[in-house]
Design a protein around this nucleic acid. Structure first.
Length: 961
RNA sequence: GCCGAGGUGGCGAAAUUGGCAGACGCGCCGGUCUUAGGAGCCGGUGGAGAAAUCCGUAGGGGUUCAAGUCCCCUCCUCGGCACCA
């Protein structure tokens, strides 16, 4: 009979909650215990509830946490809700409820679902990003950003007051473009006689300009920038939230338009965000994604004079200054400000019309064109500083205003894009680098590799690296070039035109300049609004909260900032709040922060690689610079759990007239959303005809030598694959149903047994029964065959426990299992740990009565994986308290090995027999026994034994010839 | 195109430093118990072959007494980036 998991699981979940079994100790109470901060990426509580992907990571960290507690570690394992933001708000609008109501309801549901899994969270530390007591600190951190600037010399954030001081005491001055620079006269670089000082001293600036200069230096600043406006969502999005020109949430179209928005100066941290990745224990692929996103390129900026009476010059950025002699033309981004001034009258019309065309095209259209390079001649010529050659200046949309200087020198011989443009416009292609190995590069494309400089006068015969150095040095001497580093990373667009987010703690004066509200006024609460829907224009919904909007202060009138913060704000620092969730005075107590940080293990999905994880690292570094936290990086070790896919599906492809096409004749398989659902589509490999996929049942297919084929028609290969779970595909598995049918312990075991945590793997409900059988067998072996756990049996009464010794072989297996399970938990290999427990249980089932030591150790080993049944058995073994902090079993080194060895015997590397020898037999004995084996002998007779190998404990191999 | 990860039975997957390929689970086959089994228990299960034996870790080559594991080439799948100069 199956054990009653429903009753047992409810009983222990209640026990854990009531007894606060998993409360983490504050450092003052922890004594000499070591600590572990085990963190899950907290979910946003969507309306559709938990999904089987969530519990995968949660169960993994739960096993780790339970194991560590049993090892005497003080474990901080919290859970909370990332409840602001678009998904929650979209759901609220769709269901026509106030986001607060739907958020509360969704949180209730998520909490219920998470608690039904028996996860060992310290629920007294639950955080909710939409709680004013939480977001007051999100706003507080924003004020820190607003009141700080980045000091480029020390490479760190400092209070803006410090900058003001440096300006007032004239260490710093204001450059003509409004930027702040070192005072040249303070640097010992007295200005040359007769040359006018172009920088201005702070006191020379009018008050309004002083404010503008200071505001432009803040880590949180307002700027008019081209943003990703998403009409479908009624808000702007950050670069990180736009995938292939569409919004990550909802997949709506995104257009570029200039808007005045809050920006966070993450670019100042680009170098540190990049450099500090190296020391982190994160998956290499994820670090690589962050590196790519930051996109550091080292090169040079080179000035090209424009030929003509005016004094124009264009600065280009290049990573290959060694190819300067190969520059045969120049390209400016169509939006480049100099285009206007250098275009010659005859070309004006063509240039204007091209600029218009470009402006009207979306990024998506530009991308769709792929390699088709377009552009027009401006009529102007630039002078190459290395050889005074005049080269034509073009504008083309393959050069982006947002990267580098918005202008390039084009070297078609050594750059693919320049090559294509040159081909299309009949421009000269001049090779200036030859391959170092003497080979001839193909003529039909650019040679982009490094090599040896040729046709390059001053740098001829130099290898690429040296050529770069030398040419920069020469041009630097003439003030025509300097070393330069560029990043792909852009500043973080931080405004959203939505209701459900943190309000900015900012007032705007009549000129639109920002004034921070005082810390004592935090939290600035979201106004209650009946109509919180987007306005459909860039005007945020908060602009409709008229009695909230206007503030009078010191006789002046201010307007509140009506944008709200993006979803990522609350999740940038939530891990810190768990440490000290109820602190009214600080975001986190200093001593507690020092004790718990950094996070020892952080588990979550890879989808946050360049969003949450980059943003959170940035905020953490700012807080670190300003002295609010003690660690430079928040997450020491990070693991991505693999996606759980839906059950494997089989499809047959058909042409429009219904005839089947073998999957081997098909290319470009993709998905298409027809109104009625998602359909698999593909193209015919040879004809290019569009094919439609049709779902097949398992009894319609059969396995052939290579892959699945249509039953009865083996010529037709069938496509077999697993898809991401999604509502529109209808392959979502609801954890509620699995827990109802099999119990939480079984569900947890199945999720961990599917495969390695980090691998992507298909769900298969049919496989769950294996774990159910295992748990039932454990129950039978340790408790007995009674009907159920309903009747409160006296502790110990039903258990078939003996005080006799464990049989030797089983005792040894137990010690090996203790070792293996402990190691596997530490290395996150839960699947093999469970396999080991199953093996031990299978052996235990053969016993007539159960030795107590074995029973207890097994129960403790099982506990992190299946905690409810383990607690119940533990109690029935006669214990009165939870096993949550019982010592983890230890193994005895001397018990790990068997007393006899079974050794394979090979002849010329092929297995011929296995012999059994005492574990302590010496080499001579073993080789003798091996050569005596009846199965081995025939392979040796008549041959000379050239070599006898014995790998201790592993195998014997005779090499004969 | 570039970067990263991967390819092992019918399926999910195991396999320290190169050392018995396929642990463990599902499924399947046979047996047993049963009024019954979608429960339990016992046994079998990579392929071919009556057997001896041979063949097997995407494909091809190499190193080695010995290769899933190391080296070279090719193919395929998944993920990320994608005019970033």
């Amino acid at each position: 009979m199956a054990y009653n998991f429903t009753a047992i699981e409810k009983k222990w979940q209640q026990y854990w909650l009531e007894n606060k079994t998993f409360a983490a100790l504050d450092p003052a109470d922890a004594g000499g215990m070591s600590k572990a901060f085990i963190l899950d990426m907290f979910p946003y509580p969507s309306g559709s509830g938990l999904h089987v992907g969530h519990p995968e990571g949660y169960t993994a960290t739960d096993i780790i946490s339970r194991h560590l507690r049993m090892k005497g570690v003080n474990v901080l394992h919290p859970m909370g809700w990332d409840a602001f933001g678009l998904p929650a708000e979209q759901y609220a609008i769709k269901t026509n409820t106030h986001p607060r109501q739907s958020t509360e309801r969704n949180i209730e549901n998520f909490r219920r679902q998470i608690q039904m899994l028996g996860l060992s969270y310290d629920w007294d530390r639950e955080v909710d990003t939409t709680d004013p007591e939480y977001y007051r600190w999100t706003q507080w951190i924003f004020l820190q950003l607003f009141n700080s600037y980045f000091d480029p010399i020390d490479q760190k954030a400092k209070p803006i007051k410090h900058l003001l001081q440096e300006l007032m005491n004239q260490n710093l001055v204001v450059a003509p473009d409004g930027s702040v620079v070192l005072n040249p006269t303070q640097e010992g670089m007295e200005s040359i006689a007769g040359e006018m000082r172009i920088e201005r001293l702070w006191r020379e600036l009018p008050p309004d300009e002083q404010r503008d200069v200071l505001d432009a230096q803040r880590l949180a600043y307002m700027d008019e920038v081209p943003v990703n406006w998403c009409p479908g969502l009624g808000t702007v999005l950050s670069n990180e939230e736009v995938i292939d020109g569409k919004s990550e949430v909802g997949g709506f179209a995104v257009e570029r338009r200039p808007m005045r928005q809050w920006m966070l100066r993450i670019t100042a941290y680009a170098d540190r965000l990049l450099a500090d990745l190296d020391a982190l224990q994160w998956p290499e692929s994820l670090k690589e994604m962050q590196r790519n996103w930051i996109g550091k390129s080292v090169g040079a900026e080179v000035d090209f004079e424009i030929d003509g009476p005016d004094d124009h010059a264009v600065t280009v950025f290049t990573t290959r200054p060694d190819t300067l002699y190969g520059a045969t033309y120049m390209v400016l981004a169509p939006e480049h400000p100099l285009v206007e001034q250098i275009t010659t009258p005859p070309q004006r019309e063509a240039v204007e019309s091209y600029r218009k065309t470009v402006a009207s095209r979306s990024d998506r259209e530009r991308m769709a064109d792929g390699k088709q390079k377009t552009g027009v001649f401006t009529g102007a010529h630039a002078i190459n500083p290395v050889n005074d050659e005049k080269i034509p200046v073009y504008i083309a949309d393959y050069v982006l205003m947002g990267y580098g200087t918005g202008a390039i020198m084009a070297v078609p011989a050594h750059d693919e894009r320049d090559f294509e443009f040159a081909k299309a416009n009949n421009l000269p292609i001049r090779p200036v680098v030859k391959p170092a190995d003497g080979s001839t590069p193909p003529a039909d494309r650019a040679f982009v590799g490094e090599g040896i400089a040729i046709n390059s006068d001053l740098i001829n015969d130099l290898p690429t690296q040296q050529a770069k150095e030398k040419i920069i040095a020469i041009l630097d001497g003439e003030s025509a070039a300097h070393r330069s580093v560029q990043y792909k990373l852009r500043d973080w667009l931080f405004s959203r035109q939505r209701y459900w987010g943190e309000p900015f703690p900012i007032l705007l004066d009549t000129e639109g300049r920002a004034v921070a509200i005082d810390e004592s006024e935090l939290p600035l609460r979201l106004p209650e609004m009946a109509d919180f829907k987007p306005t459909g224009t860039p005007e945020p919904p908060l602009s409709k909260a008229l009695d909230w909007l206007t503030v009078k202060r010191d006789g002046r009138t201010y307007t509140r900032e009506t944008n709200t913060m993006p979803q990522w704000a609350g999740s940038c620092w939530y891990y810190l709040r768990y440490i000290d969730p109820h602190n009214k005075d600080r975001l986190v107590d200093r001593e507690k922060e020092r004790y718990w940080m950094p996070v020892d293990l952080y588990v979550g999905g890879v989808e946050h690689a360049v969003l949450h994880l980059l943003y959170a690292r940035f905020w953490h570094k700012v807080l670190f610079d300003l002295g609010h936290v003690s660690s430079n990086e928040p997450f020491a070790r990070l693991v991505n759990q693999g996606l759980i896919l839906g059950q494997t599906e089989y499809h047959i492809f058909q042409t429009a007239d219904g005839s089947p096409v073998s999957a081997s004749e098909v290319r470009d398989i993709g998905e298409e959303n027809t109104g009625s659902g998602i359909q698999l589509i593909a193209l015919h490999k040879t004809s290019g005809e569009k094919l439609i996929g049709h779902r097949l049942e398992e009894d319609e297919i059969e396995k052939s030598s290579d892959g699945y084929v249509l039953r009865g028609n083996p010529a037709i290969r069938v496509d077999a694959r697993s898809f991401k779970m999604s509502k529109s595909r209808g392959n979502v598995v609801n954890p509620d149903h699995i827990v109802r049918d099999y119990g939480a312990d079984c569900f947890r075991l199945y999720e961990m047994y599917m495969g390695p945590l980090e691998a992507q793997k298909p769900w298969n409900t049919r496989d769950i029964v294996g774990m159910a059988r295992f748990l039932n067998s454990v129950w039978r072996n340790l408790v007995g065959d009674e009907e159920s756990a309903d009747a409160p049996s006296p502790a110990g009464a039903a258990v078939r426990i003996s005080d006799g010794p464990t049989p030797d072989a089983l005792d040894r297996q137990m010690h090996r299992t203790i070792k293996k399970v402990g190691e596997d938990i530490t290395t996150l290999r839960f699947n093999t740990a469970i396999a080991e427990l199953i093996k031990l249980n299978n052996e235990m089932g053969k016993l007539d009565d159960m030795p107590r030591e074995l029973a207890e150790n097994f129960t403790l080993l099982l506990a992190p994986f299946a905690p409810h049944i383990a607690e119940e058995i533990w109690q029935r073994l006669g214990h009165h308290k939870s096993l949550a902090r019982r010592p983890w079993p230890t193994f005895n080194e001397s018990k790990l090995a068997e007393s006899t060895l079974q050794l394979p015997v090979q002849v010329n590397g092929k297995l011929r027999d296995k012999i059994t020898v005492p574990a302590d037999a010496d080499q001579q004995t073993i080789l003798a026994a091996a050569s005596e084996s009846e199965k081995v002998k025939p392979w040796l007779t008549g041959k000379t034994i050239r070599k006898q190998l014995y790998v201790p404990g592993k195998l014997v191999n005779f090499v004969v010839g």
